[in-house]
Simulated assay, not measured.
Amino acid sequence: MFSTYDGLCGIGELAERAGVSVKTVRFYSDSGLLPEASRSAGGHRRYGPGSLERLRMIRSLRTLDLPVSAVRRILDEEDTAGRAGGALEDAVAGQLRALGSELRALRWREAALRAVQECPAAERAGRLRLIGAVTAPPNTAPLARFWRGWLPPRMPARSVSAFLERAVPQPPEEPRPGQVLALAGLYALVSGPCDGAEPTQPHAHRAAGARASAVLYAGLAEAYDLAATDMRQDRGPYPGEALDGFVDAYASAHDTADTPRFRRVLTRQLAADPRIDRYWELTAELVSPPDGRPEPTPGSAHDWLLAALETQSGHAVPA
């Protein structure tokens, strides 16, 4: 309660009690967040007993960097329901999301700066240009666009999404300088020709029709998962369940039987098909854990399975 005869106070006293400036009180009043009880005969603002607590609430919300629009929704809800509820919860959740994005961006910028700082002086300009293409926080949309152009046309949206989930690496929350360089390298790779020519679909992947393409990529995903399990256990390529699933994916997509002859033909075809090895090398670097142990990628799993197929069919696959 204010000490004046009418229980009201002026803007100066309210500002002093709340520990803010008169300018701040005036701003909140003009914004409609802090209503005036009345004006004096001289036109001075007068505030009621509840204004001090309301001003303290506004200041607390603004200290959390909530925008004025969110503060207004919270106060309106409090005026209506007698307490802050869903509006406050939504505002805080939104602010936490925004803050998380800002922190992630800062971590990427720090790693990018270290990548520039740690390289030889003669290489810094080139490295800076490479890293400059990477947004902070990073955006994987360029990688997704690359693969959408590479995949067979008319594939079902669900199959495309499943493939992109595996082929597009998710940047780490706390990157190392080498991982920033890996993502920058991926950006550069997908934004221009590979090895002097645009990447083309491997011949063995050119299954006829959308359904056949979906069957192929679903089967390959299962085979890659099985191979990745063996790779994490440091097992070398060998004929087994993973290889059978790998070959069956191609056989089913091409509506043919899995025979020794088909395996020999498939081996030669896969060995001669265009490769995107650099993409998978950079992906492995981007997703590798701090201990440096490479995490299997669809590309490395494909190579493991092809080596197993070559061993079984007796055809040498070029390195």
Rank of each mutant, 00 (worst) to 15 (best):
Ala227Pro: 03
Ala228Asp: 07
Thr229Met: 09
Met231Pro: 00
Met231Ile: 04
Met231Tyr: 05
Arg232Ser: 12
Asp234Pro: 13
Arg235Trp: 02
Gly236Ala: 10
Gly236His: 02
Pro237Val: 07
Tyr238Thr: 15
Tyr238Leu: 10
Pro239Met: 00
Pro239Glu: 01
Gly240Phe: 01
Glu241Cys: 08
Gly245His: 04
Phe246Leu: 00
Phe246Val: 00
Phe246Ile: 00
Asp248Cys: 09
Ala251Pro: 12
Ala251Phe: 01
Ser252Leu: 12
Ala253Tyr: 13
His254Asp: 03
Asp255Met: 15
Asp255Cys: 15
Asp255Gly: 12
Thr256Glu: 07
Ala257Gly: 10
Ala257Asn: 09
Asp258Leu: 10
Thr259Gln: 03
Val265Met: 08
Val265Ala: 05
Thr267Glu: 02
Arg268Ser: 07
Arg268His: 10
Gln269Ile: 09
Leu270Phe: 15
Ala271Asp: 13
Asp273Ala: 10
Pro274Tyr: 01
Arg275His: 12
Ile276Gly: 13
Asp277Gln: 15
Trp280Asp: 07
Thr283Ile: 04
Ala284Glu: 07
Ala284Asp: 04
Leu286Tyr: 00
Val287Glu: 11
Ser288Asp: 11
Pro289Gly: 07
Pro290Val: 10
Pro290Glu: 02
Gly292Ser: 06
Arg293Asp: 08
Pro294Arg: 03
Pro294Ile: 05
Glu295Gly: 08
Pro296Asp: 14
Pro298Gln: 04
Ser300Trp: 06
Ala301Tyr: 03
His302Asp: 08
Asp303His: 14
Asp303Ala: 15
Trp304Leu: 04
Trp304Phe: 11
Leu306Asn: 00
Ala307Glu: 08
Ala308Leu: 03
